[in-house]
Design a protein around this nucleic acid. Structure first.
Length: 413
RNA sequence: CGGGGUGUUGUGUAGCGGUAGCACGAACGCUUUGGGAGCGUUUAGCCCCAGUUCGAAUCUGGGCACCCCGACCA
């Protein structure tokens, strides 16, 4: 991508509105734009990160046999009446269509997937089944906050699993825990993301949250100093000592919830009469599980964890580009060489943002590059070309080294 | 939803009853080119509606929007 053509704009001044670091940096660097409270556009840079996250999640969900599909955001009122959530869920967006017809904007998709499964699942031979989708969900949060960490419209992955019995659900649930931990590792926040024992809320007595340690978080989790188990506030209130090792010493940390998985049991299969016949011809309710990750919030958490005072430091797997190629000066030779490197890198399948602008000073280009936070910075200038080289620097390191032009591609790969 | 705060060019701000100013950005020209360059010219603004006043960005009332704390959060 030529930076001169990129649909973005960076801002030097710190935003007056954005309090959260991720909000400020993502806005200033041109990744997102706020339309209204809790609603954001993902600009090309941000959209590339979103797609990368999406692909990591997709790969991992396919790894546990999830089948991707897409469910509608616009839902009929009847399904939400059936579960009682039309009236009980404060955050449900309700909208009116023609003829006073009412609809819900789906905040989650049990009300769609359960009646859908009823058309497909009849026998124990049909189970287990796993489907997932990645799409925008809508929640009328009383208070949106912290930029993309808590929004009213947001991209979310939800996987729903269907089982014949609790044991099968338990087994699959454990696989999902592993898949989730892997996703957060690949997204670059593995070391600070904890599987957190939590109370289950509506669905079941217990659930697992995935909490990323950061001061921008709105949750508090407790990490057992002896065995490392993380528990949330509700569990801590019920259990003064660690449920695993009985130690009473905990480290208290602020965290943001990047994922949550539940064993729903029959909570949604019963209202929609989702049943199957077992081997003996006996009808039984299908046992369900659900597993969510908010993509935007995950991106926000990544930025909260990976930045310095100059800007974002993207983990390689989700960076909008792998390399940021910058030409300095308006020297013809420099321009020709930078253009050639740009072509070569792209031919090798390396995602590169090429700062081809000639009306910007070196300092401005550097500052902007640091703000955007692409993992590798490649400088082409008269100075480097005199040595038949380019300068290569990693965003998270302070040392730059000269690299022969010929070796560049190999090094990046 | 309860409490608090803030609305001045695209962004960050000053002005706090009497000529709306500065910096950045953007545009043009010339000069510059290794850490947000220089000079010149130009561009663009008081959230909305009432009220008080000779006069309102400024005071009052109402509305709207955004931010923060709390509550809420499948």
């Amino acid at each position: 991508m030529l930076q001169s053509k990129l649909f973005y704009k960076t801002t030097k001044e710190k935003s007056a509105e954005a309090e959260a670091v991720s909000h400020d940096l993502l806005t200033r660097a041109g990744f997102v734009d706020q339309l209204m409270s809790g609603v954001y556009t993902f600009l090309p840079l941000g959209f590339r990160v979103l797609k990368n996250i999406e692909n990591i999640i997709r790969k991992n969900m396919e790894g546990v046999d999830g089948q991707e599909m897409l469910m509608p955001a616009l839902n009929p009122k009847e399904n939400w009446m059936k579960t009682g959530r039309w009236n009980s869920l404060d955050i449900l967006f309700k909208i009116n269509g023609s003829g006073d017809k009412e609809y819900a904007l789906a905040p989650t998709h049990e009300e769609v997937v359960a009646p859908l499964a009823k058309k497909i699942i009849f026998s124990y031979r049909d189970l287990p089944l796993y489907v997932f989708h990645i799409q925008n969900k809508f929640r009328d949060e009383l208070r949106a906050k912290s930029g993309i960490l808590r929004t009213r419209e947001f991209m979310m992955k939800d996987l729903y699993s269907f089982h014949t019995d609790q044991a099968d659900l338990d087994k699959y649930y454990d696989k999902l825990v592993k898949a989730y931990l892997n996703i957060f590792k690949e997204a670059g926040i593995g070391k600070v993301t904890y599987r957190t024992f939590a109370s289950g809320g509506t669905f079941s007595k217990y659930s697992d949250e995935f909490q990323t340690i950061t001061d921008a978080g709105e949750d508090i989790i407790y990490i057992c100093e002896k065995c490392g188990l993380a528990i949330n506030k509700e569990i801590k209130a019920e259990n003064p000592v660690c449920p695993k090792c009985s130690s009473d010493r905990f480290e208290e940390k602020k965290a943001v919830e990047v994922g949550n998985i539940f064993k729903m049991g029959t909570k949604y299969s019963l209202p929609f009469d989702l049943k199957f016949k077992d081997k003996d011809g006996v009808e039984k309710p299908v046992i369900m599980g659900c597993y969510g990750i908010g993509l935007g919030r995950l991106i926000g958490a990544v930025v909260e964890v990976n930045h310095d005072d100059r800007g974002i430091i993207w983990p390689k797997n989700i960076a909008p580009f792998l390399a940021h190629l910058i030409q300095l000066g308006d020297n013809k030779k420099v321009e020709a060489m930078a253009g050639k490197i740009y072509q070569d890198l792209q031919k090798q399948g390396i995602q590169v943002l090429y700062d081809d602008r000639q009306d910007k000073s070196a300092g401005e280009k550097f500052s902007e590059a640091d703000l955007i936070g692409i993992p590798y910075r490649i400088i082409v200038s008269e100075k480097t070309l005199a040595k038949n080289s380019v300068e290569l620097k990693e965003r998270n390191k302070n040392i730059a080294k000269l690299v022969k032009v010929k070796q560049l591609t190999k090094l990046l790969k």
